[in-house]
Amino acid sequence: MSPAFRSNLLQIGLPVILALGLFMPDWAIFLGIISLAKGLVVLGLMLLWRTGLVSFGQGLFYGAGAYMVGILPQYLPITDALLLVLISAVAAGFLAFALGFLLRRYREIFFAMLCLAFSMIFFGILVKSESLGSTDGFNVVETSYLGFVPEEPIVMQRMLYITAAVVAWFACLFVNRYLGSTMGRLSRAIKDNELRVEYLGFSAKRAVHFKIVIAGTMAGAGGALAAIAIGHVDPEMVWWIQSGEFVFVTILSGVGNVIAPLLGSVVFEILRTFAIEYAPQAWQFVVGGCLLAVIMFLPGGLWSLIERSKEGKDDGNSSR
């Protein structure tokens, strides 16, 4: 993938997803929002994955963002969707920053387990909190868009879609820029040889911490968007099965490009929609089967298919 192609893809990205939002059939809008929301979480997991880190608890930040959207309007007169998403993202980012001081010390299975432990603590608190609706969760207030409160639900959904598209696009731009920076390029280096990174004068822990914060912030934004779209939050958003699903979509997408998580997320949501429609009893089986198939036959994820088809025209300066 040449850098030029990559940046072109990003530049045309926003108009394309925005246009999609205008012309998409009504039934697809919700699917689009959820794909973008979860795509944001996966984008963060991609950053961690590049350093060989797998978070089995990203639902923590996703759920934190979602519950922020639920709780915040109860105390402050904020109903603007974009503002809610931004505040929730920042809140989740702060949570990630705080937990990051511990998480950054761990690698491999220990990192995964500590993430799991943190998310399960949050889960344990949520299911026992009567005021937050325990296992049932609670409904989220209706949101406004720059002071405008659409009457028809479908207009509301389209407004939310546009909000999600803008947030996702900025996240992609940021991540793309970051991946080309010194710290971004350290991703793989830390996986390869952490000791050498230290001996070059950079703290690998700090680099990992930064990733944790970025991933947590984006997961918070994703959770906030999902909460507004669904109109409801519950502890399942924090549960380890949800976290596992995010990891699955990361593997499915591949980590070759910032667009990959969003595309992978769309594919996954379409797959889910059809599976629930036609084979509700086989949904987990299909997901599990796909995960196995990707690990065995397509280790680079779906993105590697796109990359392969581009290879002929490419300058060979493949993405790292």
Partner: peptide, 27 residues
């Protein structure tokens, strides 16, 4: 078939097996 892959990849393989077996139980 998976030995030699990253530890976390193998965790994911068992996670996939888990998801599939959950549905088999329901069947």
């Amino acid at each position: 078939r998976m030995y030699g892959k990253d530890e976390v990849i193998i965790v994911l393989v068992t996670f996939a097996s888990f998801l599939m077996l959950e549905d088999v139980i329901i069947w």
